[in-house]
Design a binder for these strands. Structure first.
Lengths: 139, 139
DNA sequence: ATCGGTGGTGAAAATCCATACCACGTGGGA
DNA sequence: TCCCACGTGGTATGGATTTTCACCACCGAT
């Protein structure tokens, strides 16, 4: 089918290879944050011939292109997740990893204002909320 | 208090040693985030006989005890800073590392509310703002 | 003051995540 | 189809942090 194709992970300037497609598809199927190593392991399990190096490279490209969100665990490990394009933050379950995208216009404004008041420019911020989700607290 | 002694870095259950005192004192003198390696190097420069392992261990204890704040650079390196005891966040200059403690009651409430709405409990959050401070943007 | 045990120290080795290197493979335009 | 810059992936390497382990210091009991 030549017509129904979505550009999907078509990052401009990058070729389309089966490895990149595989990483992208896997991310589409998952709805929580995963480390590069976990993603690599899962791909191998599924029979995709792909190297760890390539997984890291691909994730980096996707992150640079804003196709995936990256954050760091307490241990410093980077974890990735495909997210919607607009600016948002995350509410993550410590136990099962379930992730909810949340917005907070007030927070954005607060951050900008606080930064401006202190003479800071070129401002960015990180806001993540961690907790235990309903499922896990019942269990 | 029975005397004028401040408990200072007296983390309960830990002995007071000259190494721990040295790390604690150094942190008191610095007002921005530093990596364990940088702190170790500085201590050696000052003639303190202290091992890298001990610096890591001490920082960990201090962090566990809530005596220092820890955050991670983009590269995953942990950086430490002695902070005031009350809950706050940081506004950090990307260029020189200058750090300002900031508060945002609205943000705290927002985080709690969003978490509650989604059925999350035992909530914590991370909020850090990065930018370029006035000094550094002047050049 | 001495003894013994617990906690602390630190050099070296082990881990672990991530990236660099480099020879070989391949997508896709000319 | 041909060509070759880009992509791939195994291995080597970098860098931060943790673990291991032998040795040392402190403190209370004897």
């Amino acid at each position: 089918m030549t017509t129904s194709e979505r550009p999907n992970t078509a990052v401009p300037g990058l070729r389309s290879t089966k490895q990149r497609t595989a990483v992208s598809k896997l991310l589409d199927q998952l709805d929580d944050f995963r480390s590069a190593q976990e993603l690599h392991e899962e791909l191998r399990k599924r029979g995709e011939g792909i190297g760890l190096t390539t997984v890291y490279r691909t994730l980096q490209s996707l992150a640079d292109a804003g196709e995936v969100d990256v954050l760091r665990t307490d241990s410093g490990e980077a974890i990735y997740r495909r997210c919607s394009a607009h600016h948002h933050h995350h509410l993550v379950c410590r136990s099962c990893g379930r992730t909810v995208e949340v917005e907070g216009p007030a927070v954005e404004k607060w951050a900008d204002r606080v930064a401006a008041e202190n003479g800071f420019t070129a401002v960015s911020h990180t806001v993540e909320i961690f907790g235990t989700c309903a499922e896990c607290s019942v269990g």
